[in-house]
């Protein structure tokens, strides 16, 4: 059994594979970044297009007050969600890796908490705003459709909203909450390793 172990000598003996061609790595990293950016642009593009459609539709001719109110609520929902989620994405894309580990962990914790908040509470608020907005927006067109078709439209609409609100969203939130909780707990543990070091001095 060893008595005086030369850890430094052992450490240096670790086999290091041949370095990959860095130019190739950088090229592929660029492609990945472009792919992520395109996905983001596509999601935002769809939301922006729907918002513009609503604005044009509302401005085009005279509508019932309920249609105007509904359309406005939908637009507020879209814009609010875009602003909040994009603000977070900008933060995520910003690299904070140059600060010390202590500051970095704090930043990671803050981002994760914010992400958890958006994916749960803001998403719920967004769905509620959207649902009320669409319900109001459809009153005008439904009246024009007549009692039977108008009722069918509203039954389908409420069924879909109930399905999304009581099944789809809670399921998504539950899954994500478990993920965030695990990440936040782990980050907090590492952070504690640094904060509890104060007594060493």
């Amino acid at each position: 059994m060893s008595t005086n172990i030369d850890f430094k000598a052992l450490w240096q003996q670790q086999h290091v594979d041949v370095k990959p061609d860095i130019k190739e790595v950088i090229k592929k990293a660029g492609r990945l970044k472009k792919k992520a950016r395109n996905k983001l642009l596509w999601t935002n593009g769809v939301l922006i297009a729907v918002t513009i459609y609503y604005i044009l539709f509302l401005c085009w001719s005279n509508h019932q007050i309920t249609t105007l109110m509904g359309g406005t609520l939908v637009i507020i929902g879209f814009v609010g969600y875009l602003v909040i989620s994009n603000g977070l994405l900008i933060d995520l894309f910003k690299s904070h890796t140059e600060v010390d580990s202590f500051a970095y962990l704090k930043k990671l914790l803050a981002i994760n908490r914010k992400q958890e908040f958006i994916q749960t509470k803001v998403l719920k608020l967004y769905i509620i705003t959207l649902s009320i907005g669409v319900t109001l927006f459809m009153i005008g067109p439904a009246i024009k459709m007549g009692v039977i078709w108008g009722s069918v439209v509203y039954i389908c609409l409420f069924a879909w909203m109930a399905f999304a609100y009581f099944y789809l969203i809670p399921r998504k939130i539950k899954k994500q909450r478990a993920e965030w909780a695990a990440i936040i707990e782990k980050l907090q543990t590492i952070n504690d390793q640094l904060t509890q070091t104060g007594h060493l001095e």
């Binding site: 890796t97 140059e98 600060v99 580990s101 990671l108 980050l187």
Partner: peptide, 17 residues
């Protein structure tokens, strides 16, 4: 080394994603 250490710390978050 700072960048490398932080990338190491970040792994726990990426692991699940």
């Amino acid at each position: 080394y700072r960048i490398a250490s932080n990338h190491c710390l970040r792994q726990l978050e990426k692991q699940s994603k």
